[in-house]
């Protein structure tokens, strides 16, 4: 009895291991945080981009308006790609764009906006990167669609044309 059961268990175990390895081959091994969760927006107080006054998050986000919070930097190449979509989004006028300037210097960042246009209603600067951590971000660019003080949708990496259409659909 024992001698027959053991091989069977052995073979079964290895079959299961095989199937699991096989399945995991297909899934990506790069971890991205769960983006679907609806979360309350974190509060922050950061320096304004233009001058050194402190901007408190409670004063920016009002209840019944849509906000698009975008983390960007002039040294970040994908930010340049997504910039035209931000300008497009701004044209619609139904949404306020908040820029969070990540570890940038003022001169480069202003040149960047001068060249490509400034889509942002308000820009805060995050010199040491701690502000973006409060938002659960870990790279540039990253964006958050905010409504009623909640993050409705999160975009890791540059937004695409599809993302833009989706946002426009939501805010209609």
């Amino acid at each position: 009895m024992k001698s027959k059961l053991l091989p069977l268990i052995l073979v079964l175990t290895f079959l299961i291991i095989f199937v699991i390895f096989f399945k995991s081959l297909k899934s990506s091994n790069i971890y991205t945080p769960n983006t679907t969760l609806e979360k309350k927006i974190p509060s922050f107080d950061l320096k304004s981009f233009e001058n050194n006054s402190i901007i408190i998050s409670e004063k920016i986000f009002k209840d019944n308006e849509y906000y698009f919070m975008n983390i960007w930097a002039s040294w970040c190449i994908p930010c340049k790609e997504e910039h035209k979509f931000l300008m497009e989004l701004k044209k619609g006028g139904k949404i306020k764009l908040i820029g969070l300037n990540y570890k940038d210097n003022f001169k480069n960042a202003s040149n960047f906006l001068k060249d490509l246009g400034n889509p942002y209603n308000i820009i805060v600067s995050d010199n040491d990167g701690t502000g973006s951590i409060e938002w659960g971000a870990y790279g540039v660019p990253e964006s958050f669609l905010v409504y009623q003080n909640k993050i409705i949708k999160r975009f890791i990496g540059p937004i695409s044309n599809e993302d833009l259409l989706e946002i426009q659909k939501i805010i209609k």
Binding site: K103, G129, T130
Partner: peptide, 13 residues
């Protein structure tokens, strides 16, 4: 990485 450097700073804070 930039993220790690910021996070370390944030832990300190």
């Amino acid at each position: 990485s930039e993220f790690a450097i910021s996070l370390k700073l944030m832990i300190k804070n």
